[in-house]
């Protein structure tokens, strides 16, 4: 019974946040003069209205889930990894380069490209971890700054040395990947690709890893109280490198599957403009770094975004309403709003 109440309480908070966020969205809709119910109906349709829209939402959720998982792992270990964007971009670029230039059959190239993406993202992330472990440089700030460096670097690469000069369009992008290395689509004519399977499997594996393995336990304790962990024999520096590598590896994987499954090339800005990395971080915050929760939250956020697009197509309400709903959602979850509220009520009685 106690467990049930506890479970209920843990649900209450996100639920309340969703209600408040939708209310904030309603105000925004009202301000621009839209009908609240109609707009939300359009939004729902845009996200889940048909099988096509639903798979579209899942395909948008794919990189968000993967990034969210990586961030969740880092957060659990107590590291504020804000560098997913850079890690994703470098992962994507490496995957693209590998898929283009590596000789071999399509399958070999595909696997090699994914691995290259994971490693590139992981190393970029572990670099920030190393800076913290070795020089005590604030990880939150370095990861943020490294984002700019990574995206600018990738932008340079596709603007000059790797630029696609075959087409007439002067876009900063690599050449198109050979169809043999494309990740297969899950349903014919839909955008959903095999990357989603990877993301779903990743969520489950990370959940099991955190919960049932020795290393997962050590990571959780490190996040809970680093002194306690080091007292018990957990080596923080080593753990930091490993967990940052894996964290960045997830982001790199996100970039890779996006390139191999959706874009089929590295196009400058194609990953940063939709804000996948930040959506992933949001998903993690929403779920309190729980792996399965992060996956669910990622789908929710993706739904808000695809729903927002549907809404924009069919009403006069701008897409940006979604970003308001997302932001308010985060704000309220992060503030442990209900938690404090309950506490204060108890104190008074």
């Amino acid at each position: 019974m106690d467990k049930l109440i506890q479970f209920g309480r843990s649900l209450l908070q996100p639920l309340l946040a969703v209600i408040v966020a939708l209310a904030a969205g309603a105000i925004a809709i009202a301000i621009v003069g839209g009908s609240v119910t109609e707009t939300y109906a359009e939004m729902w349709k845009g996200a889940f209205g048909s099988f096509y829209f639903f798979t579209n939402t899942l395909s948008r959720a794919t990189p968000i889930i993967l990034i969210g998982l990586g961030v969740a792992l880092a957060f659990r270990a107590g590291f504020f990894n804000m560098g997913s964007e850079g890690q994703m971009v470098l992962g994507a670029l490496s995957a693209a380069v590998t898929a283009i230039y590596l000789p071999g059959s399509g399958m070999v190239k595909l696997i090699a490209a994914i691995i290259a993406g994971v490693i590139a993202g992981g190393i970029w992330s572990a670099f920030a971890g190393w800076l913290d472990a070795r020089f005590r440089m604030n990880l939150l700030i370095t990861t943020l700054l490294l984002n700019y460096i990574a995206t600018l670097f990738a932008g340079y690469m596709v603007s000059y040395p790797l630029k696609d000069r075959t087409g007439s369009a002067a876009m900063a992008q690599t050449v198109m990947l050979d169809p043999s290395v494309w990740l297969p689509k899950l349903f014919k004519g839909m955008s959903l690709h095999a990357g989603f399977i990877l993301a779903a499997a990743g969520a489950i594996l990370l959940f099991l890893f955190m919960r049932y393995t020795v290393k997962g336990y050590e990571i959780r304790m490190l996040g809970g109280n680093p002194l306690f962990a080091s007292y018990g024999g957990v080596q923080r520096g080593k753990m930091m490198l490993i967990s940052m590598f894996v964290s960045g590896g997830f982001a790199g994987l996100a970039g890779s599957v996006e390139v191999l499954g959706t874009q089929y090339r590295y196009l400058d800005g194609a990953l940063t403009t939709p804000g996948y990395a930040w959506s992933g971080i949001m998903a993690t915050l929403l779920a309190g770094s729980h792996p399965l929760g992060t996956a669910v939250a990622a789908i929710l956020i993706a739904a808000l975004q695809t729903g927002g697009m549907g809404m924009e197509r069919n009403t006069d309400v701008p897409l940006e309403v979604s970003s308001i709903i997302q932001a308010v959602l985060i704000l309220f979850v992060s503030a442990k709003f209900t938690y404090s509220f309950i506490k204060r009520r108890k104190a008074r009685s």
Binding site: L285, P318, E320, V321, I324, Q326, I330, L331, S334, K336
Partner: peptide, 28 residues
């Protein structure tokens, strides 16, 4: 201060909110 939420998380959340509000209002 009042709700004693994690300062870093609140800061990150506020950055999201600012970005969301400004892009929305830019449009609106």
């Amino acid at each position: 201060i009042q709700l004693k939420a994690n300062v870093i998380v609140v800061g990150i959340a506020l950055n999201f909110l600012a970005l969301g509000l400004t892009t929305f209002s830019l449009r609106a």
